[in-house]
Design a protein around this nucleic acid. Structure first.
Length: 421
RNA sequence: GGAAGCGUGGCAGAGCGGCCGAAUGCACUCGCCUUGAAAGCGAGAGUCCCGAAAGGGUCCGGGGGUUCGAAUCCCUCCGCUUCCGCCA
């Protein structure tokens, strides 16, 4: 969420920046709401001050002047109620307006609104071009007997996956490997967090109120909970409504959790296999940093995600998403795209974003420095990595002419086997 | 799910309906003292909102009510603790 004052400050250049992502900011409406609300607060406060004066006057008043004072105090109460009601209404309207305004894309992002407009930053590894016909992960998985999509559909409907035997073991190995690297080498603290969270929690990171259709929602009696689409949600909200000491920053958190996505509006896209499913698991990285450092921290975070890609020996490229293609809460986003031989192109495997103070304002993640200066933290997060898509890449990039799959060296200590056949 | 109790500042812990933004202790900040530290002494310090500022307002788990006036009384919700029930 934005600070309306900052948003209205010409120096912020919000109208132009938001236009880059196709959002029209109605500054007149915003200004009107803000000043109206502030005036109502002012009036309420003045009336309250008067009411307090009257109340203490009543105490020392003589029996003769008392009734008149009490009468005036009663009237003042009505004035207060009126101002408060007006403030409440305007405040709610302002809040609603602000919650719907996306974050400002950073100027360095390329123009455009689709993944086509992303700008390639660098590549790593050699995209494989086999001299045999590359199979996709579904064919490979089924032939190897580690993937069972029919039964997944039987259990839960389309867009679910069942892994079996070494497939399930590989999934577990990938998760453990990722967590170990990020905790031991990159200094992240591992958390185990709920996959069901409240509406307020979802609002803190920006999934709600605008994107309810993307989430799975549960309801038991009068209790409503949402299934997390990513561990970003619980991890970031761990510090909701808290004040962090700046000397404790940066905080680096990781968690391996299930992720649930309705995938509404992606009919027909990636219907085959593990790439786009309703439930998958992911190791997520989240950082809480000082706002001035957020863009530098984005590079650090990308580095952590790239490190595991390299460790796994997976060919990939890094792209900078276009201003109109980044997520609602983001200021800047890098995607890591892994090479998929069966599709003969790079596909997104990790998304790493800088949210500036946008999420912190919504969630109330404040900072306080030694000298007493207060502010909001900047938050960042990135996939490090999703297990399913990583498994897809390992299968496809590691496939051999005979249909077997070579497991990356780094994983062998975790799997206990070095090939699938 | 049933019964009882409890929710006050970073922590601990007082608090008669007006003198309570709230005692006291610890922790914290700045002085003094000290070769240095500890102890001791003095001073200061909460949050959020409106305001250019002066200043004003808010906040004693959340919400509502009674009253001229509520941390203090009433209702309700939430959370925690203990006991019982159920349960992986």
């Amino acid at each position: 969420m934005h600070d309306p004052r900052v948003l209205l400050d010409p120096a912020t250049d919000a109208v132009r920046k938001l236009a880059r992502r196709g959002f029209h900011l109605d500054t007149t409406a915003l200004e009107k709401l803000l000043s109206g609300r502030n005036a109502a607060i002012q009036r309420g406060d003045e009336s309250r001050a008067e009411s307090k004066r009257l109340a203490s006057a009543v105490k020392g008043a003589s029996p003769e002047e008392r009734p008149a004072l009490v009468e005036r105090a009663r009237e003042m109460k009505a004035t207060i109620t009126l101002a408060d009601e007006e403030q409440k209404v305007l405040d709610a309207e302002l809040q609603e307006l602000l919650l719907g305004i996306p974050n400002l894309p950073a100027d360095e992002l390329p123009d455009g609104a689709s993944d086509e407009d992303a700008e390639q930053v660098r590549t790593w590894g050699e995209p494989q071009h086999f001299d045999f016909t590359a199979l996709d992960h579904v064919d490979l998985g089924e032939k190897l007997g580690i993937l069972d999509l029919q039964r997944a559909t039987k259990l839960s409907g389309p867009r679910f996956a069942v892994l079996k035997g070494k497939g399930a073991a590989l999934e577990r190995a990938i998760a453990r490997f990722l967590l170990d690297v990020h905790t031991d080498r990159h200094g992240y603290t591992e958390w185990s967090v709920p996959a069901l969270v409240t509406r307020a929690t979802m609002t803190g990171t920006g999934q709600l109120p605008k994107f309810e259709q993307d989430l799975f929602r549960t309801e038991v009696a009068d209790r409503e909970l949402f299934l997390i689409p990513t561990a970003e949600v619980p991890l970031t909200n761990l510090h909701a409504k808290e004040t962090l000491a700046t000397e404790d920053l940066p905080l680096a958190y990781t968690a391996h959790t299930p992720c649930f996505r309705s995938e509404a509006g992606s009919y027909g896209r990636d219907t085959r296999g593990l790439i786009r499913v309703h439930e998958f698991s992911k190791v997520e990285l989240v950082r809480f940093v000082e706002p001035e450092r957020s863009r530098a921290e984005l590079e650090v975070l990308v580095g952590h995600a790239e490190a595991v890609m390299q460790e796994l020996g997976l060919a990939y490229r890094v792209v900078r998403l276009a201003a109109g293609d980044i997520g609602f809460s983001a200021e800047a986003t890098y995607d890591i795209e892994v090479w998929l031989p069966s599709q003969n192109r790079y596909r997104e495997i990790s998304s790493i974003s800088d949210f500036g103070t946008f999420q912190a304002r919504r969630a109330g993640i404040r900072t306080k420095s030694k000298d007493g200066t207060r502010g909001f933290a900047a938050t960042l997060n990135g996939s490090g990595l999703p297990i399913g898509r990583t498994l897809v890449a390992i299968l496809e990039q590691g496939q051999q002419p005979d249909g077997s799959v070579k497991i990356p060296e780094a994983l062998v200590p975790y799997t206990g086997f070095s090939e699938l056949r």
